[in-house]
Amino acid sequence: MIQLNYRDSKPIYEQIKDGLRRLVVSGAVRTDEKLPSVRELATSLSINPNTIQKAYRELEQEGYIYTIAGKGSYAAERADVATGRNEELMKEFDEIVKELLYLCQDKDILIRRIEEIAKGGAASDSGK
């Protein structure tokens, strides 16, 4: 389900968030599907439940999951996720593109990468 890399400089809760976000976005976890409880996931990953709770709380704030008191956490509907996250990601995208252009990255390569990803492929060009 979720792989943690303890050597990664990214905090564990962010790795959990990224893993769960990927599962929701990819459809591996369907809309309204129940996620593992905080305790279950903490036990399976051998980490502190507070770390899982923090990841769940932030995913809920971002709209990827929702919680029903006493029942658990569930994957949110795609439309709910898209609302705020699109704007946030577009701002990040703009900043990344500006930096790449500043570093003299060819805009045609960037366009080609976007087109490859849109077709469902992996972007293969690594640079200049």
Rank of each mutant, 00 (worst) to 15 (best):
G70Y: 08
I47R: 07
S26W: 06
P49S: 02
G84D: 08
I68N: 00
I65T: 13
S73W: 04
Y13I: 00
D18S: 09
E14V: 15
A79I: 12
V24Q: 01
R57T: 14
R7K: 09
V81F: 09
Y13C: 09
R39D: 10
N50P: 01
E58S: 05
L59M: 09
G19H: 07
S73T: 06
R21L: 14
V25E: 14
Q3T: 10
E87F: 12
L89V: 07
T31I: 13
N50M: 15
L45F: 02
R21E: 09
P36N: 09
A82W: 04
T43A: 14
L20E: 07
Y6F: 14
I68A: 06
D94K: 14
L89N: 10
K10Q: 06
T83I: 14
S9G: 03
E62F: 10
A28E: 08
Y74K: 01
R21D: 00
K91F: 08
L23W: 02
K54P: 02
K10M: 11
I16W: 12
E77V: 12
S44G: 06
S26H: 11
K17P: 05
A55I: 07
G63F: 00
N86P: 00
K91N: 06
P36M: 11
R22M: 13
F93C: 15
I68Q: 06
L20Q: 03
G84H: 10
L45S: 03
R57Y: 08
Y6D: 12
I12Y: 00
K54A: 09
K34P: 05
S73I: 02
V25F: 04
S46N: 10
D94H: 11
L4P: 10
V24K: 00
G27D: 03
R22I: 08
D80I: 13
V25Y: 08
L35Q: 00
S73K: 00
S73G: 02
D94T: 07
K91V: 12
V25W: 03
L45K: 02
R21T: 12
S73Q: 00
Y64C: 05
D80L: 13
E88Q: 11
I68R: 10
L23H: 07
L59Q: 01
L45M: 09
Y64T: 04
R39I: 12
D80S: 14
D18A: 14
L45R: 08
E14S: 04
M90S: 08
S9V: 09
Y6M: 13
A42M: 03
I68G: 03
E14C: 06
T31C: 14
E95W: 02
A42H: 05
